[in-house]
Amino acid sequence: MKTNLIAKKPYITPFVIWIIAGTIIPLISIAYYGFTSKDGGFTFANIIAMFRPDHMQALGLSLLLAFVSTAICLIIAFPMAMILRESKFGKQGFLIFIIILPMWMNFLLRTMAWQVLLERQGVINAIITAVGLPRQELMNTPGAIVLGMVYDFLPFMILPIYNTVSKIDNSMIEAAYDLGASKKTAYTKVILPLSVPGIVSGITMVFIPALTTFVISNMLGGGKINLIGNIIEQEFTINSNWYLGSGLSLVMMVFIIISMLLLQKFDKTGGANLI
């Protein structure tokens, strides 16, 4: 290999210190606390605690809501990405601008906006009662949480899918049509397979935050609906049981690692789709 004069090994030192102190040791500490009992001995109890009925219920509900909101995001985002791909240059820029702008607003404020809309004394109920219908309980329902998730995470689904579909060579699609493919075949055999990397990035970027959130469920679930994120957060902030909180986090990480592996399998850009 030809020597690279710019590259010097010592340059990497701060980075190595950073990933050791900021990533590796902290993750080891979660594992340490997760396998330690309150009196300091080794235990599996904090991991097995996930099977407690209340924890299982929270995990099940989290998986369900994350799955539903990811699916909704995907269904909304894919046509949007295709429309973006086909629009003219100036319009395309404008549309991307519109999708990115809400991401710049603090996501707590965006979630709060839905609280304002959905609350008993909120905007939507004011409209409903104004036309003579009875007041609805919209807040504190799983539906409200799904709505919040879709609202907060939708741009994270649209942008990676748009990034991949915008790079699909038009001549590929034209070739499919020339060879007699129907619109449906062109989609299922050409466009969809080529957009898989973007779809997978989008799914991980929506599914993981949706699965692990405690903020959206707290704000739109009124503290009545517990997701696994809420359970873990409460172990750290209210019950101060770091051992149990760490154990449950380790179990949750299994799902995160599965998503990461899926991402790595389908997305060969090494994470470049994520920014």
């Binding site: 190595v16 990933i19 900021g22 990533t23 770091w242």
Partner: peptide, 22 residues
């Protein structure tokens, strides 16, 4: 190194936060 570099980006924020807190 690049693999470790991607961890905080892909990991759930709640896990990163708890890990750093511990």
């Amino acid at each position: 190194l690049m693999g470790i570099n991607n961890i905080p980006m892909l990991n759930a924020d709640i896990v990163t936060g708890i890990a750093l807190m511990l």
